[in-house]
């Protein structure tokens, strides 16, 4: 085969793979929106769920927001604290290597294992029951590696000169941390939080095992609830209503896309700052 022909074949293959990736995404989005958008109405978005399918998904939206809020409340301070310890305080050694290894291993565990652990440990051993609290604590463990790593990256990207300048003025280490280092790391930390939000919104297995699936709005952190993704899973798996499932899926896709755009926006502002 001539060199020119080989080039042409390779060009076509590369073009095809690119086309395929885009086509798959557009295909899925198009399919979900085509099947789902027709069902979406103000009533569907704001009414409570009825087993006869005359209601909507309002409780699921609220539960999702609750779970996102509570999970972030737990994971953000923990992740930032651990990142600060590793980057600013700990000396490179066995302990830091162990922590890094542990968090990296955490990131590789399938999410249903987290769900199983959460169901046994938080709901049963600690007695929190199927509840927002159990769900959020489980998500905290699942999100910790992401939160830790994005914060670490953010802290690493801060010029050492800022720290030196602050210390050379006689400012304390703690003041340097809170007034100079953390504010500069904020865009990176925000990116980690947004990634976490996306993860909570999209997760199912790690959520319904400790959170349960009750279809009303939880009244306290000790109540069970049902997030959008779990709702979608049930509607489809139990064959309750594919119409509702597609509509829920459309809402979910819009939420996730919005999250991704927000993440990109924050990332770009962080890069400009550097």
């Amino acid at each position: 085969m001539s060199r020119r022909n080989l080039d042409r074949i390779l060009d076509t293959l590369i073009w095809l793979s690119a086309f395929f990736s885009v086509a798959v995404l557009l295909g899925i989005l198009g399919f979900v929106f085509y099947k789902g958008l027709g069902k979406i109405s103000l009533h569907f978005l704001t009414a409570s769920y009825k087993t006869d399918l005359s209601g909507g998904i309002w409780p699921m939206i609220v539960t999702t927001v609750y779970l996102v809020g509570l999970s972030l409340l737990f994971v953000t301070p923990l992740g930032i604290g651990a990142a600060i310890y590793l980057e600013e305080y700990a000396k490179e050694g066995k302990l830091t290597r162990l922590i890094t290894f542990a968090t990296e291993s955490l990131a590789g565990i399938p999410s249903i294992i987290y769900g199983l652990f959460g169901m046994i440990f938080f709901t049963t051993v600690l007695g929190f029951g199927f509840s927002l609290l159990s769900g959020a604590l489980t998500m905290m463990i699942l999100l910790l590696p992401t939160m830790l790593r994005t914060t670490q990256e953010a802290l690493r990207s801060i010029p050492r000169e800022y720290k030196e300048a602050s210390l050379a003025l006689g400012a304390s280490r703690l003041r340097t941390l809170f007034k100079v280092i953390l504010p500069s790391a904020l865009p990176g930390i925000t990116t980690g939080m947004l990634l976490s939000i996306g993860r909570v919104v999209g997760e199912t297995a790690a959520i319904y095992l400790p959170l349960g699936m009750y279809y009303e709005i939880p009244k306290s952190v000790f109540d069970s609830g049902r997030t959008l993704s779990v709702h979608l899973y049930l509607l489809a798996k139990e064959g309750i209503s594919f119409e509702h499932a597609y509509a829920t899926a459309a809402v979910l896709v819009v939420v996730v896309l919005l999250m991704n755009q927000l993440t990109k926006f924050f990332k770009s502002t962080m890069e400009v700052k550097k």
């Binding site: 010029p159 000169e161 030196e164 300048a165 602050s166 050379a168 100079v180 504010p183």
Partner: peptide
Amino acid sequence: VGMVFQKPNPFP
């Protein structure tokens, strides 16, 4: 004992 560094390093 104040210090001025090689590269100007104002805080952001």
